[in-house]
């Protein structure tokens, strides 16, 4: 490549870094500007784990479910943080993006639109932490969370597990979002997908208390590795060989999802330009 005409279709790492820096500062400013809206979404993210702590503490009250009331509190508190950090909304937005023609200018840019979405969701997650962290602390105190097995090692292991989970869920949901290029109404599909996260990902209950068929099924699907795995790593309930199996599953699913994403994106763009929106 000559210096005068850099190949913009394959941006250099340096150019990509600049792009991310630019996008991040814009997106952070945007999220701070609309902090009221961010606060409302965060409030929504607090509700589900809050209610579930109550439900499961009521279940554990005087009965042996394999977990104590304090352990449930700890589980759903970490679940809230992991759910927030891995959450993206793009599958709900693509239908609108395509219908309104929002995509057309993005496709004309010499960079893949996924980069802007990565920055958008990262900025939201960072700004949202200002609400999530105090909520998590309050939750832990009020419901007397019991972090039994957690240690500094488990917290250290949690960081890569969380980062991989964020990458995994982002790519998988971005793939799903592409379905909007072929379907005009995607709400049902999205709702179904959310239900998978709820039950197979461990948002509704620790997978260990779920029926056996869910436990088995969840092992081979990506949902568990995006939510349940990082939670249990943080709580120190997954160590040794299981930890490495989990990382392996995360990486394998990311690799598979990236491959699917590339394939789908190419077809989606071809389909989009053929239909002409």
């Amino acid at each position: 490549m000559s210096a005068e005409s850099p190949d913009v279709t394959k941006p250099s790492p340096r150019a990509l870094l600049d792009l991310y820096r630019g996008e991040m500062s814009v997106m952070l400013a945007w999220n701070l500007q609309y902090r009221g809206a961010v606060f409302l979404w965060v409030l929504g993210a607090v509700m589900q784990p809050l209610v579930l702590i109550v439900v499961w503490q009521a279940v554990a009250d005087g009965r042996d479910t394999g977990m104590t009331a304090g352990e449930y509190a700890a589980y759903f508190m970490v679940s809230m943080i992991v759910s927030h950090m891995t959450f993206i909304w793009h599958m709900w937005e693509f239908e609108w993006r395509i219908r309104s023609g929002y995509f057309s200018p993005l496709l004309l840019r010499p960079v893949h639109p996924i980069h802007a979405d990565v920055c958008q969701s990262l900025a939201y997650k960072l700004v949202g932490l200002a609400g999530i962290i105090p909520a998590a602390i309050l939750m832990a105190v009020i419901f007397r969370a019991d972090f039994g097995n957690a240690s500094w090692q488990s917290v250290m292991a949690f960081l890569p597990a969380l980062l991989l989970a964020m990458a995994l869920r982002f790519i998988v949901e971005w793939c799903l979002a592409l379905a909007a290029f072929w379907m005009t109404k995607v709400a049902s599909l999205n709702q179904l997908f959310d239900a998978f996260f709820l039950f197979l990902g461990g948002q509704f209950a620790p997978i260990s208390v779920m029926p056996d068929w869910i436990q088995t099924l969840s092992f081979v699907l990506p949902f568990r590795w995006s939510i349940y795995f990082p939670i249990q790593v943080a709580l120190g309930n997954i160590t040794g060989a299981d930890l490495w199996i989990g990382f392996g599953m995360q990486i394998a699913w990311i690799a598979l999802a990236v491959a699917v994403l590339q394939l789908m994106w190419k077809r989606a763009v071809a389909n989009y330009s053929a239909v002409g929106a």
Binding site: V55, A58, V59, D61, R63, T65, F199, V209, M210, P211
Partner: peptide
């Protein structure tokens, strides 16, 4: 799922 673990919720 809840009633797998119990038969009365409060």
């Amino acid at each position: 799922i809840v009633f797998n673990q119990t038969d009365s919720l409060k």
